[in-house]
Amino acid sequence: MKARLDRETIAMRVAREFKDGDFVNLGIGIPTLASNYIPEGRTVIFHTENGALGFGPIAVEEKDQDIDLINAGGQFVTPLPGMSFFDSAISFAMIRGGHVDITVLGAMQVSEKGDLANWMFPERGIGNIGGAMDLAVGAKKVIVAMEHNDKNGKYKIAKRCTYPLTAKECVNLIVTDLAVMEVTPKGLLLKEIAPGWTPQEVQTCTEPRLILSPELKEIEL
């Protein structure tokens, strides 16, 4: 088996999408890790659904942990100058109203049209929608960060999603442990691949047909 990128490296690649001054909302898991890799010289302001903007990194030390300063994943975060707080209605007004530049979400499945399924495994019989539907519909750019295939090696990038949808045609960019793909009207455009992998190998791990970018290159960090 060839080596795939680890979660930290996926997060590092995602963080390269953040531009100076962007307002960014990170989902739970790999997306949250992206906050550790903001490119030097750029200021990124983080938003969290539970009502804060402009907070700092995860509070690791117990003495810095404050139950009144958490992110939407329930993790403790730290204060930063310029931070603000607001209620959930305002928080989601920001999201749905198109004021958040980028959201990075995990996914169970993404279709070639950019449909996203990330809230429920049908076999469990119940799941959590949480803020994912609003983020998928409202953010200006939706990036999915995930492993290319599931634990059993099955397709997560599919012709169509078989799990319950979070939103239709909402994903702009998919960053995985094998590749970076842009969702285009013609299909998925393969733009970058992991070191040591060929486009054909990535294609065999992907259900829909990939369009090879003329500028296809190795993933750059």
């Binding site: 307002f23 302001i45 938003h47 903007l53 402009g54 204060p79 930063l80 100058p81 310029g82 931070m83 603000s84 707080f85 607001f86 305002i90 920001m94 004021h99 958040v100």
Partner: peptide, 17 residues
């Protein structure tokens, strides 16, 4: 003022707007 000089609990319009 500089960031951090306003009490975050009193900010009515967050900077995203």
């Amino acid at each position: 003022v500089e960031p951090g000089e306003l009490d975050p609990e009193t900010i009515v319009t967050p900077c995203v707007y």
